[in-house]
């Protein structure tokens, strides 16, 4: 997994690459939360993610929940088919505004 971070005036753009799975979930959580703490708006680009399992989903869910609690904007963009199928299966597209 590779995460590309771009900070711009309170808007943070993260681009995650490869997989969001249990093998990378700890790392994913750390990066997401580190960046969430320092911004007003977090945008997560999932277009380069080719795999997401339940561990990856949980971290994504947690980040969104944390953003809501602290009144920040959280948005995922360009989810690929793998991501969509998980969100579809879990009936969580609405939660992420997709």
């Amino acid at each position: 997994m590779n995460i590309n971070v771009e900070n711009n005036n309170g808007l943070c753009r993260l681009r995650i690459e490869d997989e969001m799975t249990i093998s990378t979930a700890a790392e994913l959580k750390r990066v997401l939360f580190d960046n969430l703490a320092g911004c007003r708006e977090l945008e997560v680009d999932l277009s380069h993610v080719n795999e997401m399992d339940t561990a990856g989903f949980q971290v994504l869910y947690l980040a969104r929940r944390e953003a809501d609690i602290s009144n920040k904007v959280f948005r995922i963009v360009s989810p690929g088919p793998k991501i969509l199928s998980v969100l579809q299966l879990y009936n969580m597209k609405d939660f992420f505004g997709i």
């Binding site: 700890a26 339940t54 009936n91």
Partner: peptide
């Protein structure tokens, strides 16, 4: 019909990303 339940998921600091809370 399917509802995903996430209420078992603890606050962010305590959440272990390798555990399942669903």
């Amino acid at each position: 019909g399917l509802t995903t339940l996430t209420d078992a998921m603890p606050p962010a600091q305590e959440m272990d990303p390798e555990s399942c809370y669903l």
